[in-house]
């Protein structure tokens, strides 16, 4: 019945939406930033525990749609152990993948995150997928204010 949506709602996304990974508070987090998408009402708080410039642990709290929940869940998994520079590079690649500016995007470079590539066909939903990453970007730049994708 929902054949047209196969590229958007893949099983991995349903899985992460049902059972979000790293859905917890890091008590002694070094970075804590709020992300908010006023259009949808998606809200999340991202926690990072740093070890030098390496992201030792990442977690989140909040609520949102399946796309935004899966995106932040996958992100907290994938950035663990990455340096700030590696995470920023990944953000850039992810952003290009979801906004569709580069048709030749190397999906291997984003690994599991490739399941979110389908949002590029749904302009109204791109912000759901990128909210997590804009919040991470702010956290890495150590910006204290909350982030909005509007």
């Amino acid at each position: 019945m929902f054949d047209d949506l196969r590229d958007l709602y893949q099983e991995v996304i349903f899985d992460h939406n049902r059972n979000p990974r790293n859905f917890r508070i890091i008590e002694n987090a070094d970075r804590k930033v709020d992300g908010f998408n006023p259009l949808c009402g998606d809200r999340l708080t991202l926690f990072l525990k740093m070890n030098g410039d390496v992201i030792e642990d990442a977690s989140f709290q909040g609520s949102g749609c399946a796309i935004s929940t899966a995106s932040v869940s996958l992100m907290t998994e994938i950035v663990k152990g990455k340096t700030e520079a590696e995470a920023e590079a990944l953000f850039k690649t992810f952003h290009e993948m979801t906004t569709g500016k580069d048709e030749q995007i190397n999906l291997e470079a984003v690994g599991k995150l490739a399941v979110l590539a389908g949002v590029r066909e749904y302009p109204a939903r791109v912000k759901c997928a990128t909210l997590a990453w804009h919040t991470l970007d702010a956290a890495l730049k150590n910006e204290k204010q909350s982030i909005s994708t509007e």
Binding site: D3, R6, D7, Y9, Q10, E11, F14, L107, A117
Partner: peptide, 17 residues
Amino acid sequence: MPDTNLPHALNSDKKIK
């Protein structure tokens, strides 16, 4: 583009009644 071989939840061929 996404891997189309991934298992997918949206395979229901339920018709609108």
